[in-house]
Amino acid sequence: MNVIEIHGLAKTFGGAFGSKVEALRGVDLDVGAGEAFGLLGPNGAGKTTLVKILLGLVEPSSGDATLLGHPAGTPISRREVGYMPERRSYPGFLTAGQVLDLFGKLLGMDTATRRQRIDLVLEEVEMSAWRNQRVGGFSKGMQQRLALAQALLPDPKVLFLDEPTEGIDPLGRVSIRSILRRNLERGKTLFVNSHMLGEVELLCDRVAILVKGKVRRAGPLSSLRAPNPEYRLTLAGADEDGARQALTATGQEAESIPAPPGLTVWRLEVGDREELNQVLDSVRSSGLEIEEVQRVRASLEEVFVQTINDANEGGRGVGPGGIQTGGRDEAVEVSVATREADNE
C-alpha cells in the first residue's frame, strides 16, 4: 500500500511581474508503507518544495498528491505525519517540554496522552535531562534532536526529514540514524530529503534523484548502484606498454588511470570473476607483478553525478568511473561496512 502518491506535480514560483522559477516539472512518485525513501538532488532541485507541497506549506501549480490516502495539503492528511524541516526556529523562551506540549495541543492530544508521549519521545532522542531547559540555549545538535522529538510526537505513520543530519557531528549523525532505524523497524515510513548521499545510502532502501524539478532516476538503491563488475588493478613497475599488452591479450578493455610513481593502475571492466582470473593469469604469465586488485563499486555519488550530468544539456558527461578521486571507493566500502554493522 502506498502512503504517498504523487502524480504530475508541478510548481512554478513567481510570475506576474517577476521571473518564473519552475521548481517542479511534473513529478510522479509513490512511496510504500514502511519504506525508507530517499529523495536526492542538488541544491535547488525542488526537494524541499516537493515535501512542502505534501505538507500543505506550498500550493502546487498543477498535479495532485495524496498522503495516507487523503489529498496532500489538507489538515486531515497531516494528522499522522511528522515533519522535521531543514530550517526551524523554536522560540528561545520555551523549554523543550513546553515546545512539545504546544505541539501536542496542536495535535489535539489530551493532557495524559501529551505527558506520556512527551516523556517517550524525549527519552527516544535522549533529551529527557533537557526537558526543562530553554531552547534558546540549545546547540544545533540538541535543536536537531528536539525537532526529531517533535516530529515523532504524533507517533506518525510517515516521517518527513529534510536534511536530518545537516551540520551534525559524526556521533550525532550515528545517533539520529539509529533513532530513525528504530522507527523504521516499528513500521514507520521515512521520507528523507537530502543531498548528503552517504547518509541516504546508509538509511534508505529506495531513492529518487530529482534534478531541475524532475525525477531523473528512481528505484531500489541496490539497482541504482548495480555495477558492471569493475576492478582496479595496480601493477608494480612502470612498463605501461607491457602491461597493456598483457591485459588486452584476453580481449578485455583496459583503461590506464593516473598512478603513483613505480606503479601502473588500470581500470578493468569484466563480465565475471572467471574473466577477471583469466586477465590476472595473463598478467602473471607476462612476468608482471600484481600489487593490488580492488573491486570498484559504483557509488551513489557516481550515479548521482551521472544523473545530474545527463540532465544538464551539454554536460561534461563525467560518468561512473569517470571520477578519479582516490579515496572514494574506500569511502563506499566503509559506508557499506557501517551499514552492515548498524543492521546487526
Binding site: 512542502k52 506549506l57 489538515p75 524541516p85 530550517r87 526551524r88 505541539f103
Partner: peptide, 15 residues
C-alpha cells in the same frame, strides 16, 4: 510568520 517557525506551525494538522 518567521521562517522556520511558520513551517513548523503550518505543517501541523491545523487550518
Amino acid at each position: 510568520l518567521q521562517t522556520g517557525w511558520v513551517d513548523l506551525l503550518a505543517s501541523q494538522p491545523l487550518a
